[in-house]
Design a protein around this nucleic acid. Structure first.
Lengths: 220, 220
DNA sequence: ATTAACCTTAAAATAGATTTAAAAAAACAG
DNA sequence: CTGTTTTTTTAAATCTATTTTAAGGTTAAT
């Protein structure tokens, strides 16, 4: 099992890492919120453990941010005992479990195992493919805002992962039946989307299949 | 310190009571939900400890019921490890802390003391997001007074942190179903609220998602 | 090489959002 | 009750993001 551990108290972090490694859990430790967020966005971890109070970006903000971008890795929050409000907020933000400080390492291990075991929670308003997460609630793709038409196109592509979608289908899905095939709406919006995918630095690409349509695929 | 302990597992209850009495905590133990509710309504206790699963009336229902009747005694919920949904529900219902089973008695004692120590929670309804705190009692946002409609709008946004709320939802929430979509009430009040957010110098912003609605987000 | 399909871009048009101010209604104080 | 103040509603002017249109450049297939 591999976890990401974001914690700014050095001695605590060291002690915990030592114990976890005995349990055969490999730990990536960072002390800084910003760095933590960056790593948390990668899909490498079985569980992410976040301290609530962190330099630069709080643990709560990290959970919110990664959940908005469709990252579903289980999150365990750590915080000083009795900060009940923090706890509630943590769970509301999308954390999966909570542990009050100070804690027994044995309990941490038990909870980590429980979290790692459980089936990846799927959030129904997030559609994902590769490293992309489309939030249908606020029309954002990995955090960047899409317009109505952009979201319509990428949604259609993401709902049929791997297989091609014709231009006519896309037109029908986003603009409705009545528009003529003459218009180049689809080409224009595919171009806009590719620009945004590049901006996100996604590994997903929109591949054109000439005289047929488009499909999503992974780089290479 | 005196607590009410509602628990249907006899052997667990006995063990816990034994430990707590050593700590000089006097315990009233009942095994039944209905009886538990009756006692919980009395103001005799420093803390109420509730198992979630109980005969007749669940722990969750007990919290809801006593909070509705204005009882402010701190509540600690007990439930099997990893039932995260239960946990969230428990806290939403008005419980103050949560402990997963199985637990170390030492931890239970620590949390009981923490709960008993804390100032009687005055039910000042405060909703928070980022650096904002909306006081629902006097309709003030970080000290500045809001009007009825302003408060209604920001409340709806703050209750779904991070996710978008449509204009129709806002209209329905603040003005009721019957108003037509033609009116620009929402736009007007969003404008007023932004002015007040600026005045407060909050880091929270109201982001518009064109043709969809609004959501709260942090600066940047 | 030719041609049809596709890509990109930028300007024009539009739909939707913002801001204001004034009128109407409601709340409040004397 | 009456006048004053605050809040809500209405409406119009302004602004802006998104969509549409259009045109010239690029690519791939025969």
């Amino acid at each position: 099992m591999r976890i990401l551990y974001v914690e700014d108290e050095f001695y605590l972090a060291e002690a915990v890492m030592h114990m976890l490694e005995k349990e055969n859990i490999s730990v990536d430790w960072v002390a800084d919120g910003r760095e933590g967020l960056e790593l948390a966005l990668k899909p490498h971890y079985d569980v992410i453990v976040l301290d609530v109070l962190l330099p630069k970006i709080s643990g709560l903000s990290i959970v919110t941010a990664i959940r908005e971008r469709g990252v579903k890795t289980p999150v365990l929050m750590l915080s000083a005992l009795n900060e009940v409000e923090e706890k509630v907020k943590g769970l509301e933000c999308g954390a999966d479990d909570y542990l009050a400080k100070p804690f027994k390492t044995a309990e941490l291990v038990a909870r980590l195992k429980a979290l790692a075991r459980r089936p990846a929670l799927q959030d129904k308003h997030i559609l994902s493919y590769g490293d992309l997460g489309l939030n249908l609630n606020d029309r954002s793709l990995n955090g960047v805002q899409l317009t109505d038409k952009e979201a319509g196109i990428i949604e259609a592509l993401m709902r049929t992962p791997g297989s091609a979608v014709t231009k006519e289908q896309l037109l029908a899905h986003v603009w409705g039946m009545e528009v003529s095939f003459e218009e180049n709406y689809v080409e224009v919006y595919i171009s806009y989307l590719r620009k945004k995918l590049k901006m996100i630095k996604s590994k997903v690409q929109i591949k054109t299949i000439r005289s047929l349509g488009y499909k999503l695929c992974l780089e290479d």
